[in-house]
Design a protein around this nucleic acid. Sequence first.
DNA 1: GAAACTCAAAAGTAGTACTTATTCAAGAGG
DNA 2: CCTCTTGAATAAGTACTACTTTTGAGTTTC
Lengths: 226, 226
Amino acid sequence: MTSGLPGRLLDDLGPAIVTGKYPAGAVLRTEELERAFRVSRTVVREALRVLEAMRLVSSRRRVGITVLPRTDWNLYDPRVIRWRLDGPDRAGQLRSLTELRSATEPVAAALAAARATPEQAGALTALAVQLRSSTHDLDAFLVHDIAFHRVLLIASGNDMFAQLGDVVDAVLTGRTHHHLMPQTPKPEAVRLHVEVAEAIAAGDPARAEAAMRAIVTEVLDVLPGT
Amino acid sequence: MTSGLPGRLLDDLGPAIVTGKYPAGAVLRTEELERAFRVSRTVVREALRVLEAMRLVSSRRRVGITVLPRTDWNLYDPRVIRWRLDGPDRAGQLRSLTELRSATEPVAAALAAARATPEQAGALTALAVQLRSSTHDLDAFLVHDIAFHRVLLIASGNDMFAQLGDVVDAVLTGRTHHHLMPQTPKPEAVRLHVEVAEAIAAGDPARAEAAMRAIVTEVLDVLPGT
DNA sequence: GAAACTCAAAAGTAGTACTTATTCAAGAGG
DNA sequence: CCTCTTGAATAAGTACTACTTTTGAGTTTC
């Protein structure tokens, strides 16, 4: 559902809920939404059905569509993640995601060392080499960095880790936009990426985990408000 | 959307997709679903809209509703998690979730040590004491164990970790059903829970993380097929 | 054999009618 | 005056029809 009128309505209502324009407890009416967004009842119902599935709202007859508190939301839904990143508390959401990332990537590295295919290990090594070669070009560095982490998460052999590739993308891209990335990548960070790749190629989970832990520890340390 | 005809249709189609009854590439037609499930077009469209938002299917005019490959799915959607746990590869899904858990809980413990409120720290200590007192009653032990981990995840102050409480619930409950839980909880595991609670109460992130890591390492070690 | 055209297939959107669930206000009784 | 019952209004749920739009496949033409 990325197109069509229900999708467009979703992309209006979702952010409005997530950013607090419609706070928890607020009650929406399907008829009012029809008028406000100039769409038919079918379109409104379909968009609301999706919001309900994301646990952003709850629908009851005679009552209306009630906005739910944040503790009910499906926070891992890619749309919810995006809406929160586009909202006023972007820094908070980046921190949340960074902490999640700091938890998952070391374990993913260890699993990758145990499970990566030769192709995956080779791709990681190649990407680490490219990282080293592109420290002078921040955009190119970012592209390779994101690719490195994505391949690693896939190589972990756990598809739930693999899906966090989008989270890593959002975090790394967000760091750059927030000027949280150093102007020139630290040699130590690059070295650690190379070490992770080497440890995975060598099938050494403990070493891969330790190196990746060092990478994400440095990331956490530079977060504001830690 | 937990009730109503769209919800019921969702709970039929979702598992059918997730378990491969409708494999990737299969094309569904709204009209056929209307006939097969004896519901109106509105109901079918609403259920499909939700499946589309979960990235289980993709809809295009003239083409139909195409089932997407697993790499597209929103694997963190609570329904997708449940459908996979209820499917034939339950053990694989439990392993996936256990690995995710093993990654996140140590970091959550460290964050909780830094951020827990006195109430949360107190609740963890109380729950650890109850764990120690209920080793003779496996059901009671499970209840307290789940509660312990839930409170800890909430105490981490990261709502994405907090949401994984359901994952921990599913994993711990699943372990019991799989007879993967020891008949009598190991004293060492209980001791570690107490140590986690003490470390959090003392505001010692490193100690909390290490103790929790020992807990989840033991859990990973007893997984079949590791 | 490739490009253009046509049409059938299937979803998308609008709107109406009727049903069902639920809440709230009013009235009755103690 | 408070509590319980009843009825009606409110709002969503479901079915259905009509029309539009998109898209792919088959046919025709060059």
